[in-house]
Design a protein around this nucleic acid. Sequence first.
DNA 1: TTGAAAGCGCTAACAG
DNA 2: CTGTTAGCGCTTTCAA
Lengths: 428, 428
Amino acid sequence: MGRAGIARQAAWRGPRARESGSGTGWTGVGEESAIARDPSLGALGSEPDPPGEPSVVGARGLSRPDDTGGVGHGEYASLKDVASRAGVSFQTVSKVLNGGGSVAPATLERIRRAAEEVGYIPNVLARGLVMRGTKTLGIVAADPSDHVLGRFVVAAEIEARRQGWATVVANVDAFTSDVGRHVEVLSERRVDGILMAAPQAETDPDLGERLRGLLPVVSLYTILGLRAPLVGSDHVQTGMLAVRHLILHGHRTVGVVAGTLGRHVTAARMTGYARAFSESNIELNDSDLVEEGDWTTAGGYLATMRLLDRAPEVTALFVHNDYMAMGAIRALYERNRDVPGDVAVVGCDDAPVAAYTVPSLTTVRVPFEDTGRVAMGLLLRMVGGGPAPITSTLLPVELVARASCGCAVARGTAPPAAPGAARRTEAM
Amino acid sequence: MGRAGIARQAAWRGPRARESGSGTGWTGVGEESAIARDPSLGALGSEPDPPGEPSVVGARGLSRPDDTGGVGHGEYASLKDVASRAGVSFQTVSKVLNGGGSVAPATLERIRRAAEEVGYIPNVLARGLVMRGTKTLGIVAADPSDHVLGRFVVAAEIEARRQGWATVVANVDAFTSDVGRHVEVLSERRVDGILMAAPQAETDPDLGERLRGLLPVVSLYTILGLRAPLVGSDHVQTGMLAVRHLILHGHRTVGVVAGTLGRHVTAARMTGYARAFSESNIELNDSDLVEEGDWTTAGGYLATMRLLDRAPEVTALFVHNDYMAMGAIRALYERNRDVPGDVAVVGCDDAPVAAYTVPSLTTVRVPFEDTGRVAMGLLLRMVGGGPAPITSTLLPVELVARASCGCAVARGTAPPAAPGAARRTEAM
DNA sequence: TTGAAAGCGCTAACAG
DNA sequence: CTGTTAGCGCTTTCAA
């Protein structure tokens, strides 16, 4: 075994050179300067990026098939490699590197150095095999170019890291509905739990069955046929706050640019809409005033156009997210309807741009960061063996009044946001 | 071994029940209906989401610590479990499940069924151990709430999947500069290559050293001290196209709301700016007209405000991305400067909202999707042993003229985009 | 056509 | 304090 280690070591070409001349460990000076002189690196920090006359090519083209690197991609050093270098057994190395029990200070130091010198990187695969767990959480996220989910995911990852866990993300692109495959990728890699942050979960027919009993799961979206704890924000309240605000401003004919109709958020926000009317004892001429959007600006624009064609009498619009609201504002502009003079607009989410549109956008702030933090915290507790809550965890939302509903901030009056943490400040 | 398998099997509580009464495999009806009756699941597809009176709680609160789930999280079935169920050795199962050579049709069928019944999910960790490779690529991505990178990452993942590779993403949040840690997380998991899509790579002092010789790497950003192939778009060209366009419109005093000054993109776009002037033989009163932004709308707003204070004589603004450009438009609005009448604005990237701002935003389209596809394609080739190109691969950009520079699309004239694939259509 | 042996890199328990 | 034995789940010879 010791010999095997040594034998392999001779062939091994790890991340750093070993057996380097002096005993001080490898500095890599030679290579370093060779690389620094390479024109392909160029004058760092000064000019064109990347430098030199660029080789502009078509989508598939590549330039000069040269240079596999000089520095080949070696194999990783193993515990045995470290061990033979330090003159101990690899089990002792394992103990040391995991901060284990009693080891002679001298040995410890020797091992530490050896590990450093060979650039030891633990093999989480092997460790996971024996530990039956990877200290890793998987996040299934929707297309991250959905701005809003991005904020959620990042917050969740930060929370995991804070608690000493690694995360890996599997992004579901907008064209795929097969969330199951992504779950599979993660569970094949034996993550210890999954945070589900892809709306596709609501419609995937057998996701629930695939997930059942497999792993601890916390989801942002209802998963069919799976009793997974849900964390989110109060969408009904969102609808209520938005529409109540419009009603208070005297609006009675409130059009809706809704999100995708299949989604629960959409239904909930519609419920809030209805509830706002009923609590005011105002009769509501509903479904005719609703147009479905697809959460994008383009979709919001088109839906608004359709709505204006059909119901030009609307004096206000409740739009299910801020990106669509921007499309709505654009559509109103093209139809020569002043916002908020002719039509008031309220969005949802409080996207970072909402404070800067013209006019600035009244919206309902959704606490994405908090949601991410809470959801991950809950998942971590479940992974640690804690109980799963049986009810949903809903975080509160709040109205942020700006100009698009006729509130506040006249032109040129006040900056839409304080310097720095603009979004935060305003939302408070 | 067989006995061990059986022994463990008795205790094992896998994703699906085994040894179920009938021979048809488990259907889970009992549990299913129990769950469906659970009020916490609510009336799917109809109303509030999540349903029932929500338990609105503070950030840390949780509701009813009840119900660990009924369905515990069992362990995964192993090859041995499948084997003992099919009455063969686990090696044979391995062969079958990997589409291996000659196996008796009957055995094959029996194994397939057994695997299905126990819900076998291969352990990629164990496989990776012996195969010395995971068929997985790592992507180090910046904060995915950066809309633009999200598009890149998703395209890259799609390309990987198309070629049969799995991907895992490690997101670097905006507050961390330690890209190295994320590389570590990925290489500990023995991904076979890394796609670096975090701008922090440009400033991390020892990322290059950590990466050298470790793995195949393709990067969107120059990595200090590492000869990694770069894929990106032609930022110099971007600056030139934008500014040349403004010059053609007669502008001579062109202010700049730049990106972060340390970044190469920023420098390159400034180079393009200068080049556009020099090719027109126009003298250029440069640095005084540049304000640094931070790529956010808020930052663009503030930078523009500062610039207008200092240089009210500008008649045009070259803004280094579309989000900042929105902030710029807002700032100009507050200062009562008409866009484009008093000040023309050109952005960069062609973000999905650019077509819908008021006025719609002239910008330079950056082919994020193509970049992602190409970068991943290159990485895949390198992982497969192919050579790394020594020069950068830069994809071409193109100007998209809209209203904010005085071009095109008067109010109410034409929809800013065709229905559906708006972004694409316009950019062509 | 199938199974037995070996070993990937690692941790855990125990013996020296 | 250190090394030995055992085994995690898997693929790969190679022998039966």
